[in-house]
Nucleic acid binder design. Structure first.
Length: 567
RNA sequence: GCGCCUGUAGCUCAGCUGGAUAGAGCAACGGCCUUCUAAGCCGUGGGCCGCGUGUUCGAAUCACGCCAGGCGCGCCA
């Protein structure tokens, strides 16, 4: 509808006001904040005031009739400084309910004229331990951004980059060796950057005997590598399980080590060399990143001949582009932000579009228990794992909480609050909306009331839906596709959360306001039928939205009991 | 010192690419359950949108400068 109004405005501007098509202003067509300002409003007249040397309201008066021509339009008003407010006929809105039922689980999905091939790389935690609490936010944000992109018509691939080649995995295996020796009473110390957690000892003890034959001696390189592979594989398995149980899917785990084995890096270095942006200094090899907007040159090959993490990661990003992905979305912790200009510089230096790389920087999450920060001692190796958190508060609540704030705001995650089954907890509010809708339908069937389906389209009139609250709900449902597209394009999944909260709030309000005077299942049969169509459509929209967040849509929720201190 | 993020109600945060009278939840206070789940609803109070200048028909939103908090500035990952 928005697009049709836009087209009508463009036509009116060129034909009635003689504005050349090339000089059309970039006017808006928006849903206004106030309902009295119509279903849609445009600022076109104000933008043209200067050029046409006319008062905005006068121009608006000329444009109005053009919009009026559309069959869905009820009336058009000139308002305020020169806004055009467009009101649609109620019937035009009501018809949308059938569209919702027809589309079902696909309602809100968009098709793109030109879908982009998008890679979302996220989590990418070192395979040296289980996912900890801090990984949760990036995991959910990446997961939902991927869902949103796919639902809004793009082709999406999700990947986890496995840093299985560097110093960290070496620290892991050395830590394992330390624990093995300790078990046997052999001398030795944990390496300075070693891993303290008890899980490392468990991991070491789980190693098959043939991998620990070097004991009681010191391991040679081959033994170390073998044990390292074992440790990494086991940790990666644990990470996969954590993600799986948290509702986060990956299409592929890309191994840094395997990528190293390919010739990508060598080619890349040659290419940089050929372009004259690669130099040797002090025994190391540098990429002259400062020529491409970064602060300073960056080392690719260290003086000991090993690669920096950056070198390998750059090879990986190039690999993504070669595999045909046009948009590379990475979800990184905000502490890695300094890395962005470096990667962009390198892509640019290699003749790739630097803007292909989009980085979602997620800010820190502080963990609270009952309002007090949870203090963690890194030295003692105590970490709060992601699994502990979602097992404590529940997967739905954990996911919802991580999505509750924009990625670039730091946030607090209060365990007690997330667990609380009360009004403070927004996830239950939304889920309860869905359960309530289901319960109305169940009650209707119990009472033997016919629940209309799509087959009633055409036969059943929706005209009895005349309450302002009912029309408001329909209008909000109409916005889903645009909300999803917007959230996807801007990588802001929290927008869907807010949408969902508004939608369910409108429903709860409608339900309660009329619960006594005009209950959904009361009154004339035609009205009940029409309202059941509204309920069916609402349930679909709520379910689809929850689905996009990876949060379950329960059909019923256990009642807490009104007189409940218990529980 | 330089760079990135943030600063909006008592608290936690929305506010889309500049639009009309700045919103939500929680907290506080007052109401609503014989009838579709009260995990709900209705109402009241609460604001220098960090500060200042600029851009323009119009700024919480854009630009610049300050102030405050967080993070980063390795031949670490």
């Amino acid at each position: 509808m928005k697009e049709r109004l836009r087209a009508a405005l463009r036509a009116a501007l060129t034909q009635r006001l003689g504005v050349p098509p090339a000089e059309l202003p970039d006017f808006s067509v928006e849903v206004p904040n106030l309902e009295s300002h119509g279903d849609f409003a445009t600022n076109a007249a104000m933008l043209l005031a200067k050029r046409l040397r006319k008062a905005p309201r006068e121009i608006a008066g000329l444009l109005g009739p053009a919009l009026q021509a559309a069959p869905e339009v009820d009336r058009v008003e000139v308002a305020g400084p020169g806004f055009l407010n467009v009101f649609l006929k109620a019937d035009a809105w009501r018809a949308l309910l059938w569209d919702v039922l027809a589309a079902g689980a696909d309602y809100g999905r968009s098709a793109r004229e030109r879908p982009a091939r998008v890679m979302v790389e996220f989590v990418s935690a070192n395979p040296t331990g289980p996912l900890h609490f801090g990984h949760g936010r990036g995991a959910v944000v990446g997961d939902v951004v991927a869902r949103l992109l796919a639902f809004s018509g793009h082709q999406v691939q999700r990947e986890f980059y496995v840093n299985d080649a560097g110093k960290q995995v070496r620290n892991l295996v050395l830590s394992m060796v330390h624990w093995l020796r300790k078990d046997r009473g052999l001398p030795g110390e944990l390496p300075a950057d070693g891993y303290h957690g008890a899980y490392v000892a468990d991991l070491a003890r789980a190693a098959p005997a043939e991998l620990t034959r070097f004991l009681p001696g010191e391991p040679d390189e081959a033994s170390l590598v073998a044990l390292e592979r074992f440790g990494v594989a086991a940790m990666l398995d644990a990470i996969r399980r954590d993600l799986d149980d948290f509702g986060v899917a990956m299409d592929r785990f890309s191994s840094e080590r395997e990528l190293l084995g390919s010739t990508r890096l060598a080619e890349l270095l040659q290419e940089l060399q050929a372009r004259g942006v690669y130099e040797e200094r002090d025994g190391a090899r540098w990429f002259l990143a400062d020529r491409f907007g970064d602060e300073k040159p960056r080392v690719l090959i260290k003086s000991d001949g090993s690669h920096t993490y950056f070198a390998n990661d750059l090879a990986y990003h190039l690999d993504k582009l070669r595999r045909g992905f046009e948009r590379l979305i990475n979800v990184w912790g905000a502490d890695h932000h300094g890395y962005v200009p470096r990667m962009r510089a390198a892509l640019q230096a290699l003749g790739q579009p630097p803007e292909a790389l989009e980085v979602i920087l997620v800010q820190m999450v502080s963990l609270l228990r009952d309002g007090q920060p949870v203090v963690l001692s890194k030295r003692a190796g105590d970490i709060v794992t992601l699994r502990e958190v979602f097992e404590e508060v529940g997967r739905d609540a954990a996911r919802f909480f991580f999505l509750l704030r924009g990625s670039d705001s730091q946030m607090e995650f209060d365990l007690e609050l997330a667990k609380r089954r009360s009004m403070d907890n927004p996830v239950y509010y939304v889920q309860y909306g869905h359960a309530r809708l289901c319960s109305i339908l169940a009650r209707a069937r119990e009472r033997g009331l016919p629940v209309p389906g799509l087959e009633s389209r055409g036969a059943l009139s929706l005209a009895p839906l005349e309450l302002p609250e009912e029309l408001r709900l329909v209008k909000k449902m109409a916005a889903l596709a645009e909300v999803v597209r917007r959230a996807a394009d801007s990588c802001m999944p929290h927008q869907v959360v807010y949408y969902l909260q508004e939608l369910t709030a409108d429903f709860h309000s409608y339900y309660t306001t009329y619960g006594k005077t005009s209950p959904i299942l009361g009154g004339p049969a035609e009205r009940v039928a029409a309202r059941l169509v509204l309920v069916l459509a609402l349930r679909q929209v709520v379910a689809n939205s929850l689905g996009l967040l990876g949060v379950s849509a329960p059909e019923r929720m256990e009642s807490l009991g009104a007189e409940g201190e218990e529980g």
